[in-house]
């Protein structure tokens, strides 16, 4: 597939299917690449997948989510190549297993929702940041179980995604308040816990998420409030940032921004270290940050 084809395929998946997260869309696109691949070597296939991944990163979607999704898929291909006689046979098996794999990934959100909604008890006040599908669905799930709770949502500059989150919550009849990003400290004393999504979960057990998450985590720690992260396991990523400047530029800036002087640009994501995270709710269960590195080691060793 041509680079432009890959890009348009990837973007059309995300535009058409509201419920699909970036990571899954990236994997779905790679499945398309695999389907249309007509050379006959694994080596060539891996090369083509790499090109497709670079192409997707060149779009305006979160590079962190795309990278972790694609890395997982590539790992899946390399672990999956077994002793088959012909490449076609191998490809067929890969496609079959790929679909099964995708199906499991799509079930992940349901599992996360189920685990996360248990922590929302009657009367809770929850602070969340930006707009995350999995957080929204978890809150919806808790509301469905007739729990009464209140949500504070940050406006989340620069894209103001919090406004949309607040609108979505209001439609679900969940009481919610939009707050300024700078008011995180102000509301922290009245909330019971913080619940955010993640673009990627890194090897240390920390997360990469919309800018401002780190501020929120530091603030939550200072006031002794639990900081919960909801993330499906396909967001687990093999990077180990030590500080903010350690994050790859492609995570922090959009392709357009990268063409300009970076010192004048606003980063889009930040890194929240594991020490500030209480628990991560994933489809593999409720994990402490240290359990995340364990999972990644098991996979990539």
């Amino acid at each position: 597939m041509q680079t432009s084809e890959v890009k348009s395929k990837f973007e059309s998946i995300l535009n058409e299917q509201e419920d699909v997260s970036t990571g899954i869309a990236a994997i779905m696109t790679l499945m398309e690449v695999l389907k249309h691949y007509n050379s006959i070597t694994i080596q060539g296939l891996i090369e083509e997948l790499k090109v497709a991944m670079e192409a997707m990163k060149d779009t305006n979607y979160s590079a962190a989510a795309i990278t972790s999704g694609c890395e997982l898929f590539r790992r899946f291909i390399t672990l999956g190549t077994m002793d088959y006689h012909t490449f076609d046979e191998c490809k067929e098996i890969m496609l079959k297993r790929g679909n099964l794999f995708l199906k499991k990934l799509k079930e992940a959100k349901g599992k996360v929702m189920k685990l996360g909604s248990q922590f929302i008890i009657d009367g809770s006040k929850i602070l969340t940041h930006s707009r995350s599908r999995v957080v929204l669905h978890t809150l919806r799930e808790a509301a469905k179980q007739n729990r009464y709770f209140e949500v504070f949502v940050t406006k989340s500059q620069p894209d103001d995604s919090g406004i949309r989150m607040c609108k979505d919550l209001t439609e679900l009849n969940i009481p919610c308040t939009l707050i300024l990003d700078s008011a995180i400290g102000y509301v922290m004393e009245e909330v019971d816990f913080v619940m955010v999504g993640a673009e990627a979960v890194v090897e240390s057990g920390g997360i990469v998420n919309k800018i401002g998450s780190y501020t929120m985590a530091v603030c939550a720690k200072a006031m002794n409030k639990p900081f919960y992260v909801l993330a499906e396991s396909f967001k687990f990523s093999r990077v180990f940032p030590l500080n903010q400047s350690d994050l790859p530029d492609e995570y922090k800036y959009s392709p357009e921004m990268r063409k300009r002087d970076l010192s004048k640009e606003h980063p889009l994501v930040d890194y929240t270290p594991p020490a500030l995270i209480t628990l991560l709710f994933t489809d593999l269960g409720i994990l402490t940050p240290s359990a995340v590195s364990d999972e990644l080691i098991k996979l990539y060793l």
Partner: peptide
């Protein structure tokens, strides 16, 4: 146990 590795490798 449920693991990422298992998610990927199971047939």
């Amino acid at each position: 146990q449920q693991s990422l590795h298992h998610l990927i490798t199971s047939n």
